[in-house]
Every structure is written in C-alpha cells, then in structure tokens.
Amino acid sequence: MTLLATERMKLFSTRSPWFCGVLALGMVIGFAGLVALAEDDPTTLGLRSTLFGWQFGLMVVLVMGALAITTEYRFGTIRTAFQAVPNRTAVLLAKAGVVAALAGVIGEVAAFGAWGTAKVLAPGADLAIAGEAGWRSVAGIGLVFAVAAVIAVAVGALVRQSAGAISILLIWTMLLENLVGIIPRVGDDIQDWLPFMAVNRFLGDPGPDPVMGPWPSLAYFAAIAAALLAAALVVVNKRDA
C-alpha cells in the first residue's frame, strides 16, 4: 500500500498524466461529438461508431504508460527509487498498478462521456447500451486501457528511452499489426493472434467464426501484458540501475 501511495504521488506530481488524461478524454469524447454532429441521418448512428475514438485514446494511454517509467530513467530518479526501495519488483508492480488504475479510470470516463455526448448531440439515434455486447463495447474500453497501460510500462522498462518505447508501441499498434495481414497465406492467421487485434474482437464485432470469443480475447490480451511485465521484471532486477 505504501508503495502504491508513493507511485501515485510520483505520477500526479508531474504534468504528463494530467496532460495525457485530458488529451485522451478529449480525443474519445471529441470524436463522439464530431460523429454525432456529422451524421445527417441519426438512425444510422450506432453505439460502436460513436465510440470509435477509443483507438486514439489508446495511443495516448500507451504514451502515458511508457512515459511514467522512461522519464524515471531519463532523469535518473529510478536510481533514487531503487535506493529508497531496493525491492525493484515491488516498485515496478506498484507503478504498473497505479498507471493501469489511472488508465482504467480515463477509459471509463472517456467511454461513458463519449456515449453521453453522442446521446445529447444526436437525440434521434438509437444509442441504448443493450445487453452484454453493448456494455462490453462501452465499459470494456476502461479494461482495455488498463491492460494497455501495463504493456506500455513493461515496454518502457525494457527500452528505458521515451522516444524508443513510444515508437515501438505506436508503430506496433498502428502499423505492424495491420501490415501483418498483407503477408500471403499465413498473414491472416498470424493477425488473429496479435494483441491489439484481440482488443478489436473484445470491443467490437468479433466477425464470423472468430479464433476466440470476446472475453477470451481480453484474457489473451492480458496474458500478453503479464508476459511482457514479467520479462521487464527479470531484466530490471538483473540490470544495473
């Protein structure tokens, strides 16, 4: 608990989480507003199309998570942190936990904020959150953001440099996962097992005959995050600070 409180103090005593939080909310909610206003025929407007800004919010959350750890390396405060708490595993887990919690809150506020905004701006549209699939599409965004933040912290701890970690995360999510599909024959099969494609199955329409259902897809995404975090823990404990 002490460590969680310490990491919370560290996170909120700098500007970047506030900046990233506002930016993520603005992206997701702003896009929902734009979509709602741009649509002439409100009946074609659906729940998922109003929430499509979550992908941009995700980018911001990845940047925030990576920065939370890479700035510690950049400014040398990681040494002060390990000097204060020599148990590096505990430090990294606490940081990942706090960043994930913040990302989760940002995700939920953004998702429901976007939904509410669209409902106000396009009163004629059918935006009811119906059934398990509906709730998953909205409330699931917070879960995805939380897990994504853990991935970002793990990659940040492995790479240690802001520019490097952010480049890897953004190029992976925006480019590589989409480009893999181009590979002849095996591309589509590989793509099914990529982490952020699993997120698409969880939040959106899994399509016909998916490789796994929405919830197993989220579990798979979380397992990849856990594996990356475990790798980061091994490396951070072994490496000289």
Binding site: L3, T6, K10, R15, S16, E72, F75, G76
Partner: peptide, 21 residues
C-alpha cells in the same frame, strides 16, 4: 541532477519520505 525537472522540491522529497514511511 537525479530529480524530475517538472516536480517541485517538496514533491520530490514527499514521495521519498512516503516510500520509507
């Protein structure tokens, strides 16, 4: 120079204090 440039002196010491009770 091992301090976060955008963190105040008091905040820097506060998290250190917190971590060691």
């Amino acid at each position: 120079k091992w301090v976060h440039p955008n963190r105040s002196a008091r905040a820097h010491l506060a998290w250190m204090a917190k971590s060691n009770r």
